[in-house]
Design a protein around this nucleic acid. Structure first.
Lengths: 150, 150
DNA sequence: TCCTTTTCTTGAGTCACTCCAGTTTGTGTA
DNA sequence: TACACAAACTGGAGTGACTCAAGAAAAGGA
């Protein structure tokens, strides 16, 4: 798969910044905007934070990236799109891991009572403690699920 | 059930503000902090925003309230605690509705691969469109999820 | 190569909290 | 009832994560 082609097919222009963002998201593991911006800058030099947000929005809109937002932390981005998978989030350090959908198709679950809503997606977040934090048993970063410390 | 007793049992002091907050959360349907603060002020006169946040934290910590945070909107609070239910969220106006858990006990789902995480809760959010928004097909101006544009 | 449209930059602004230090108040004890 | 003290509250400042706006730069079709 070629990023430039993907961008063009989505009707977006191909720029070094976007290519770098796509690459950074793929390399990073559910990175947040700040993290991605840092990676991109390391690759292509100066890129403004706003440009990163803008690109992230465009890429998310074009379904080239997926945005997830676990409660209590900033938005994260991942390159795994097109399938309907869910996430494991660590309550202590905020680490995120993918886990496959139990059912396969969205919405993979049906609520017991829809209250008249037309449901098109079921988002499942599994809260728990990651292996690293289990080992370090104490709170490795104090701040709970807040800001993420890799 | 008596709110004052609940507070005392949780080791919290009983104040007019806290009682009003509990009542406001119960009356409102998944209100956010701003909303709750307004209701509380209407009831007991002046209460600072910080006092509201502080009380909301204390009450959430004491399991008298539950905090939910749908992506893209501010934290909401609800008084239904103790059971493991899930939420329906409207993509247009941000309205939130409860739906019972299909299983009953947390975690009601088990991920296909835990990646070593010890999972204690599965949070399920069903995204869709509420009845009002289906009818008005535009944005009805729900009290809203604030910033989520259609 | 030119021109249009999209992207990016700089800078200011907003929202939803959080932190801090000092004051007030609810409660258990005397 | 009075008192002491920790919990609760106040006002103000600060922070992180974005969002908005306007002008400059770059991509890509003609």
């Amino acid at each position: 798969m070629d990023d430039a082609t993907d961008l063009r097919e989505a009707g977006l222009r191909v720029t070094a910044a976007r290519l770098a963002i796509l690459e950074a998201v793929r390399a990073g593991d559910h990175s947040d905007a700040e993290h991605i911006a840092r990676d991109v800058r390391a690759k292509v030099g100066h890129v403004s934070t706003q440009a990163v947000y803008d690109a992230l929005h465009a890429l998310t809109g074009a379904r080239l990236l997926r945005r997830i937002e676990p409660a209590g932390s900033a938005a994260r981005y991942e390159a795994r799109v097109g399938d309907n998978h869910h996430h494991l989030v660590c309550r202590r350090c905020g680490a995120v891991a993918d886990t496959d959908c139990v059912v396969g198709l969205a919405p993979c679950l049906v609520p017991s009572d829809t209250h008249g809503f037309t449901v098109d997606e079921a988002e499942v977040v599994f809260w728990g403690v990651c292996p690293q934090c289990q080992v370090g048993s104490g709170d490795p970063r104090g701040d709970g699920a807040a800001k993420r410390a890799p």
